[in-house]
Amino acid sequence: MHNKTLIDYTLHLADNALIIGHRNSEWCGHGPVLEQDIAISNIALDLIGQARNFYQYAATVSGNGATEDTLAYLRDAIDFKNILLVELPNGDWAQTILKQFFFSTYQYFLYQQLQNSKDAQLAAIAEKALKEVTYHVRWSSEWVIRLGDGTLESKNRMLRAIDEIWSYTGEMFLAASYELQGIREEYAVDLSEIQKNWVQKITSVCIEATLPLPADTWMQSGGKEGKHTEYLGFILADMQFLQRAYPDADW
């Protein structure tokens, strides 16, 4: 059965993982120390692997000759359904870490619930990925604490990172139309449920990191519906150039 809403929801999950995975891969060879360069590259690999699983599934549901590659390489920015948070530039290590911590914590609670999805394949992908995301949450939260409760320099950078990123966290819990429909059909995750857990985890880690969190503020949104920052265009130009210039290139 051709289910546009299920495809959109699956693409949303795939796009989130692909774009933050791509951002993390930009650190490969540039990490602050070798072990952390390896860590963030490993996390990139996990996330791109998750994206592949979701794209493969979306391609199966779509039919029409779609493949994981056509979905990743031949859609335009307006078709991408990732949240704005994941397309933000990496900035310094503090911003990258904070972005990863916010996102991994979100993925952790999201996948925990997605395991109960009525859609067996979404549930299976989530069950598999959850084990890896558990390591991502541990790793990123430890860095938030280390930097926040570290030197004056590292703390200032974390405070600046919070200022830069905080207004992009609200979109995670703002359900798009395909999420609302998916919740009704019991294959998508109810975001209001996971928001409580997310806030609790972020708050407890930030207390340990001696980092104050901003009060409620205006939140950015639009990514889930295809309205992106200009940064996504640059990511896609980088990522899709080869397939666009040399269609069906293979090696």
Partner: peptide
């Protein structure tokens, strides 16, 4: 433990 992430996805250093 030196790092939770090692030379491949399945290993820690």
């Amino acid at each position: 433990l030196v790092s939770q992430f090692g030379s491949t996805a399945c290993k820690a250093l």
